[in-house]
Amino acid sequence: MVGISFSYITSEAYYIPFPEEREAADKILAQLQPVFEAEDILKIGQNIKYDILVLMNYGIAVKGKRYDTMLAHYLIEPEGKHSMDWLAEQYLNYKPVSIESLIGKKGKNQGTMRDVAPEEVAPYASEDADITLQLKTKLDPIIKENNLEKLLLEVESPLIEVLAAMEFEGIKIDTESLQEMSVTLEKESREIEARVYELAGETFNLASPKQLGEILFNKLELDAKAKKPKPASMQPVRRYLADLLVNMKLLRRSWILGNW
C-alpha cells in the first residue's frame, strides 16, 4: 500500500503516505482501523470492493454501510461507462488528473505509484477521494428518484462483502457438479422462458428492454404508474424488477423467520 486518501467534506481531502516497510505501515493502519471497522460510519468508494480487498490483506475488515459510486451509476445507466474519470466529466463537469501523468502510459515502461514522490501523489490521491464524495452527492438523488435505493442498499451493496471474501479466500470448484448444474439451469431457463411467453400470450425478445417494457407495462399493465419505456431504455423495466426482487427477498425473509 502506497497511501490512503480520504474526504468527509466536499472540496477537502487528505492523503497519508505509507512507508514500504510492512511493520511501519501496520502502525499507521492501526490508528485508522477503528474508523474502518466502525459500524456507524458510512464508507463511500468508487469500486469499493478493491479498497476492501486491499485492507483485508492488512488484517482490517471494513464494517458498516457501504456506498459504491461505480455500482450506483451502473444501476442508473447499466449500458454506460462507470469509470471515475468519465463520471467526473459527466456529473461534475471536471476532468481529473490522469494517472498516466504520474506513472506514464500503459506498457512495459509504465512505473508504479511507489516510484512517485509523495508530494506528487498527494494531489492526485486527494482528488480521487474528493471526486468520489462529490459523485455520491450527485448520484444519490438520481438513485432515489428512480426508486433504486432498495436495490442498491439491500441487494447489491451486501454482495460487495460476499464477493470480496470470495476473491480473498478463493473458491474450490467441483467441475462435475458445476456441469450438472449447468444442464439443470439450462433446462429450467427454457421452462421459465416458455412460461413467460405463455403468460405474455406471445413470443418476444427477453433481452430487449423495449419489448420487455411493452409486455410488462402496456400489454399486461403490471404497473399502472410506470412510465412507458423509451426505446433502448432499461430504467423503467429495471425499477419494476428491482422492486419485485426486493419484495420477494423481504417476503422470503419473513417466511424464514415465521417458520424458524
Rank of each mutant, 00 (worst) to 15 (best):
V2D: 07
G3D: 04
S7C: 09
Y8N: 06
I16C: 03
P19M: 06
E20C: 02
A25Q: 13
Q33K: 13
P34M: 09
V35Y: 01
A38R: 03
A38K: 05
E39Y: 01
K43V: 08
Q46I: 01
I48A: 02
K49H: 04
Y50H: 02
D51T: 06
I52V: 15
V54D: 06
L55H: 02
N57F: 00
K63E: 03
K63Q: 14
T69Q: 09
M70V: 06
M70S: 12
L71R: 05
I76M: 07
H82V: 11
S83D: 13
A88R: 00
Q90E: 06
P96W: 13
S98D: 14
L102D: 01
L102E: 03
K108C: 01
N109V: 10
M113Y: 15
M113Q: 10
E119T: 12
E127L: 12
D128C: 10
D130T: 04
I131Y: 00
K136A: 07
L139T: 03
I142Y: 00
K144C: 11
N146R: 10
E149S: 13
L152A: 10
E154L: 04
V155A: 04
L159A: 15
E161Q: 14
L163M: 14
F168D: 06
I171P: 00
I173H: 08
I173S: 10
E176F: 09
T184Q: 04
L185G: 08
K187M: 11
S189F: 05
R190Q: 14
E193A: 13
E198G: 01
L206H: 01
A207T: 14
E214Q: 07
L216S: 10
E221T: 10
K225S: 15
K227A: 15
K228G: 09
P229I: 10
P236V: 08
R238Q: 14
R239S: 15
R239Q: 15
R239P: 05
R239D: 07
L241C: 11
D243M: 08
D243A: 11
L245V: 04
V246Q: 03
N247T: 06
L250G: 00
R252P: 00
G258P: 06
N259L: 13
